[in-house]
Structures are given as structure tokens and as C-alpha cells.
Design a protein around this nucleic acid. Structure first.
Length: 604
RNA sequence: GAUCCCGUAGCUCAGUCGGAUAGAGCACCUGCCUUCUAAGCAGGGGGUCGCAGGUUCGAAUCCUGCCGGGAUCGCCA
């Protein structure tokens, strides 16, 4: 039950009624008509902008439309008042019974309250994390991981059919470096003194067990092989060892993926998916042999001018065409990504979402161009041809690229630089072990993803009570606690029977109680808006707001005992208030679950 | 050089498709625990929404141009 959609439907019906009576011209576009929450609750429960958005097309004064709409809506038995205000707002107040029904709906629908059908089961692929499999996850990785995971949860809750995907970059030079680093640890495991790890290789201790495992499996068999023979073997061995480490790290943050897609698999075993994808682009006339201009702002010396295979991404607003083949005849990273995304499309996804780190911003235009090309879609541009949004439109499928900004690490207020070599490398696991997954997740989500985030390791560890996650969790625990106490006060207290509310909700007459219901009633609309915008942070802020309202109402009971939930001499009112508290607990629980954060029954 | 992001209270940040008197947390000040969990609550001070134009019934929000901070650029991944 979405009260905004509900009331909007009634407004639209009223507008059509006015048309039928000839009080409004036919042929009006009601698309911009919206029912929303007024910023100031003294204006009413709900506000409608219909009069103002229709005035021009209807060639009428906004206030005249609003007055007509007002008298029409006043006949609705749920409408307590419909006043025209300001330039033509229609402020609606609903009768208490309308809000009491929301409590009933929440308790009847349980965890499904707020879940929506807007996604219509459309197949959606969210690709996130995709860290190179060269070591354990560090704190910098976890923002994109948490964001992507929460976004996937949100979309699933909003009715999309979501696949969570991790692209394993296991084909480039970095994994060769990994293999060489592991090979060194392998020699070490066999008793050799390897001395200091040479520059250019990964020095981390986490590779020691990998080298030891390699020694256990192969003994000394690899030691005298030429590199070209052991390299591929060690490479895949190392990746097979490290991916479980990464999965474990992610699991510690309550993150799981449905699909791990290997870059190397694109060209393994006689198949060449890159070639197939490039052929598809060639068919569209977007592949050509040409020369690239020297990039500006870089030293000239290393630039080599040569003819090469290029993708005409400038066709879709990119600033340069993009190379697909290196001079040694192998594919570029981009070529692999083209094939990977072609594969996603062939798997039938209608919506693609990629979560990028801010350091990949420059990669966005070519990725958008790729999807636009494959789907016969467009990349939106403004009049000057600049990219307007980071998504494609109008094609058989679309891509939206979400960028999470950098996490700036601090320690005791000082900027903190991570370095694998200096041993100041902070792993994700260290943070989660010390602080817990819930605070990390909530902190990452309690912020618009495009904003930079300061992460002070010491502060999060020592003053974790400042983290808003506890505020929200406390509200949930408080609700659980009062329900426990109520059942103690009234042994067989009942407010729900067979999925419907049995308590007399008409007893909820306090303004604070009704205000809480109104906030809870906003949840479905919030979910829809956040899902549409791909912005999980809105949910985090909403939950904070709801928790705040609940804490405020609760504490009012200190001064005014008659407002407390448990009224020892009044079973009926206790039951009604318990129903309200249970409904708030449900919304808090559902929201926290979408964010991937726990909803505890008690705080410690 | 080019592209992109950001600029809202002392600090960190929200602000729904353009909506009414711009909000929260922290910090500061004043109160509230014999009371359903004080990890809480109530109140106070604090603003040129970076600057200047434009669009319109209405702009923190959209457009243009500046200013400031940050990120990125390649046959890397």
C-alpha cells in the first residue's frame, strides 16, 4: 500500500471528473501531477501540485483549478480537508482511519510491506567490486562493494530480477605479477632464501600460504621450468587460491555475488568471445583501422603513432576512439570489457548497472558508447555534445554507471596513506573484525555515493557509538523491547490474528502516534524513488528520520505517562499501541535488511 | 591542455521530477534518568545555498559564464 500512489489515483479520478463536467478542458497531460509530502507538516498530510502544472495548458488560473479539485476531493470519505494554499497547492488532510489502515497494511504484509512491483521482474545485472584478484580486499574497496550490494538489494525489493556479478580481472599483466610473486613464495616454501621481495612484485605475507600450497601440490617440479611454462599454471593456481579469500572478505560484510565472471574465460579453450563482439560492432560500421592522436598532458617520448583497430566511440560522444588491440596482437582490457558486456546483453539483461570507483571516471564514455552501440540506444548529450548523464537510453537494454567516490583514510585526524610495502595496508577484514560489519556498511551508505568519504579508522573504532547505525538499530531494539514488556504485562496480549490487526486502532488518536504512522506510510514511496534513482543512501537517511521520530515520541512518555505504550489498566489501548510499534519495527527491520544491516532485538 | 565530480551552518553532510519560512548530526549553550532501554529526548545560537546572469507563477535544484577544491587521461588494469 503506497498512500501517495493511492491518493494520486483519487486526484486523477477527480481531475477526469472535472473534465467530464466540462470544468477542465479535455486533452490535458496529467503526467506532471504529483502527490507528495509537504516539507512542512503544518501544510497538511499530502500536497498536490495539479493546479499549478495544469494551469498553463488549461489556460486557467491555478487557484481556480485547485478550488474545483478541492470541492471534488472533499466528497472522498477519507479526506478530512482539502485546502488551497500559496500559488495553488492543494493541501490534503486525511482522516485518522485512513492512517490506521496503514498500520493494518504494514502488519498484514509484514516483510513485504514496501516491496513493490515497479521493477516488473525485469532482469537487471549489477556489477560491483570487481577488484583485481591479487590479494585480500582493503578498505578502499568496500565502499563500492557495500554500495553495489545495497543497490542490488534495493532493486530486488522494488521488484527487479537482480543478478549480482563480479568481473574477475584475471587476464592482464597484474595477474602475471601475481604469479611471479607467488612463484617466489613457492621457492621460499621449498626452503630457498629469497631475500627481499624485488620491486614490482607483491610483497604481502598473504602470498606465503599460496606459495606453500603450490609447493605442496607440485613439490619441486616447477623449479627448473622456464617461466613461460610455469606462468600460466601458477597464475590460475594463485587466482583459485585468492578468490576464496576475497569471497570470505565480502561475506564478512554480508555481501555475496551470484556470478563470478572470468575475463580470461572470454578467450579460453578455442572460443574467442572478443572476436564475436567486435564482429557485431563491425557490422554496425563502428570498427575501423586508424591512428589516434597523441593524448595531451603527457610526456611525448613514449608515444608511438601507429595504425590500429579502433572502436568508433566518438560516435556516441566519447572524446577519442578506443583501441581494441595492443601492438603485440593481444586484446586491450577494453576489448575484453566490450565482449563481457556483449555477453551480459546476450544473457538477456534489460538493465545493466556498473559500480565504478572514482578513478575510473574516464572510462565511462567508452563504456556507455559500447552499450549504446550494441542496444541501438543513445548516450544523452547536451547541445554542445557533452555527456549529460551516465546512462544510456532508448535501446533494447540500458546501462547506468554509478560512481562511488574515494574513501579518504584518516588515522587520529591525520591523512593515512596505505602502502603494501610499508606495511600500512588496512584490509577490509581488519576493519570489520574491529568495528563490525553493520557500522561499516551503514557509514558507507549514509552518504551520497558521489561524495568523497572520510574514513577515520581510529574514530570508527573508538567512538563507534557516534555511528548513526546504532541510533537506528536502537529504535528497532526499543520497539522489540516494549513489545516484550507488553506481553509480560498482559500475558495473552494480542493485536494481530491471522494476519489482520485485531486491536482497535481507532484508539490511536495522539498526534505523535499519527505522525509516526504517516512517516512509516512513506516507506513504499521512498523505496520506489530510491530504486528508480539507484540511490540507496536515501533509505539510510529515511531510516534515521523514522528512528528519530520514534525516539522523540518515546521520550514524550517520560513527562506524559498516558502516552506510554503499556498502560497497565488498559488492555485495549496497549494492544493498539503495540500494533503501531510493531508496524514501526517492521519498517525499520525491512529497511535495515535492504541496507544489509542487522536489526537487533536488543542492544547488547 | 581536455573531460568529469564536488561547492549548502564553525565541521561532516541531507534536501524527492523545480514548490511554500533551506534541514540533520557533530561542536557550543540550557534543561530532562525513582519513569515502557539516557546508545535517548526537548530547547537555543549559528546561512549571501561559491559568484554573476538567464529560464518561470516559483530556482539550492534547470541553462550559460566565471571562481575554488578534487579525480581522470595512454596499447595500464
Amino acid at each position: 500500500m503506497n498512500v501517495f500512489a493511492e491518493v494520486e489515483a483519487r486526484v486523477l479520478a477527480a481531475l477526469k471528473g472535472l473534465q467530464a463536467k466540462g470544468m477542465l478542458p479535455e486533452d490535458l497531460d496529467f503526467g506532471a501531477v504529483a502527490v507528495e509530502q509537504p516539507r512542512d507538516s503544518s501544510h497538511g498530510d499530502l500536497a498536490c501540485n495539479a493546479a499549478m502544472v495544469l494551469a498553463k495548458a488549461a489556460k486557467m488560473k491555478p487557484r481556480d483549478i485547485a478550488e474545483a479539485l478541492s470541492s471534488s476531493l472533499k466528497t472522498d470519505p477519507d479526506v478530512a480537508s482539502a485546502e488551497v494554499a500559496g500559488p495553488g497547492f492543494l493541501n490534503l488532510r486525511m482522516r485518522d482511519g485512513f492512517w490506521h489502515d496503514v498500520v493494518g497494511a504494514i502488519l498484514a504484509q509484514g516483510p513485504k510491506f514496501g516491496a513493490s512491483g515497479t521493477g516488473a521482474g525485469e532482469r537487471t545485472n549489477v556489477e560491483y567490486v570487481s577488484a583485481n584478484p591479487t590479494g585480500p580486499m582493503h578498505v578502499g574497496h568496500c565502499r563500492g562493494a557495500v554500495f553495489g550490494d545495497a543497490l542490488a538489494n534495493l532493486l530486488a525489493f522494488a521488484g527487479y530480477d537482480v543478478t549480482r556479478e563480479y568481473y574477475i580481472n584475471d587476464a592482464g599483466g597484474q595477474v602475471d605479477v601475481l604469479a611471479r610473486s607467488v612463484f617466489l613464495r613457492y621457492r621460499e616454501a621449498l626452503g630457498e632464501d629469497i631475500g627481499e621481495i624485488p620491486a614490482g612484485l607483491y610483497p604481502g605475507d598473504y602470498l606465503k600460504p599460496v606459495g606453500a600450497a603450490l609447493a605442496k601440490e607440485h613439490g619441486a617440479a616447477l623449479i627448473n621450468m622456464p617461466e613461460e611454462r610455469w606462468l600460466p599454471l601458477v597464475r590460475s593456481f594463485a587466482i583459485d587460491q585468492i578468490m576464496p579469500m576475497i569471497r570470505d572478505d565480502l561475506a564478512a560484510l554480508n555481501i555475496r555475488h551470484d556470478v563470478f565472471f572470468s575475463e580470461a574465460s572470454l578467450t579460453r579453450g578455442g572460443t574467442d568471445k572478443v572476436q564475436a563482439a567486435v564482429a557485431e560492432l563491425r557490422k554496425r560500421g563502428l570498427i575501423f583501422e586508424g591512428r589516434l592522436e597523441k593524448p595531451k598532458g603527457h610526456d611525448d617520448e613514449e608515444w608511438e603513432d601507429r595504425e590500429q583497430t579502433l572502436f568508433r566511440s566518438t560516435e556516441y560522444g566519447d572524446e577519442a576512439d578506443r583501441a581494441l588491440m595492443k601492438s603485440d596482437g593481444t586484446y586491450t582490457y577494453f576489448a575484453g570489457d566490450v565482449a563481457y558486456h556483449y555477453d551480459k546483453l546476450q544473457r538477456g539483461f534489460r538493465h545493466l548497472i556498473n559500480v565504478f570507483g572514482a578513478d575510473h571516471i574516464g572510462y565511462i564514455p567508452r563504456m556507455l558508447a559500447t552499450i549504446a552501440a550494441f542496444t541501438d540506444g543513445q548516450v544523452e548529450r547536451d547541445a554542445k555534445g557533452k555527456l549529460k548523464h551516465w546512462h544510456t537510453t532508448g535501446g533494447t537494454a540500458d546501462l547506468d554507471i554509478k560512481v562511488v567516490n574515494l574513501v579518504k583514510l584518516f588515522k587520529n585526524g591525520e591523512p593515512y596513506k596505505m602502502s603494501k610495502r610499508a606495511g600500512t595496508f588496512v584490509t577490509l577484514r581488519d576493519v570489520v573484525d574491529e568495528v563490525g560489519g553493520d557500522p561499516v556498511r551503514f557509514m558507507m551508505l549514509y552518504r551520497k555515493e558521489l561524495e568523497p568519504l572520510d574514513f577515520d579508522f581510529a574514530k570508527v573504532t573508538e567512538q563507534s557509538k557516534d555511528n548513526p547505525v546504532f541510533y537506528v538499530q536502537y529504535a528497532h531494539a526499543r520497539a522489540a523491547s516494549v513489545l516484550r514488556n507488553a506481553r509480560e504485562a498482559f500475558a495473552d496480549l494480542e493485536f494481530v490474528r491471522d494476519g489482520t490487526v485485531s486491536a482497535d486502532l481507532a484508539l490511536l488518536t495522539d498526534a505523535g502516534e499519527l505522525d509516526l504512522i504517516k512517516k512509516a506510510a512513506f516507506f513504499p514511496a521512498l523505496i520506489e524513488g530510491a530504486a528508480r534513482a539507484h540511490e540507496p543512501h536515501r533509505l539510510a537517511f529515511y531510516l534515521y528520520d523514522l528512528a528519530s521520530a520514534f525516539h522523540g515520541h518515546w521520550t514524550r512518555g517520560n513527562d506524559l505517562p498516558q502516552l506510554r505504550v503499556i498502560q497497565a489498566d488498559d488492555r485495549a489501548i496497549t494492544a493498539a499501541r503495540c500494533a503501531l510499534v510493531a508496524s514501526l519495527q517492521q519498517v525499520l527491520s525491512s529497511g535495515l535488511t535492504v541496507l544489509g544491516v542487522g536489526a537487533p532485538e536488543a542492544m547488547r
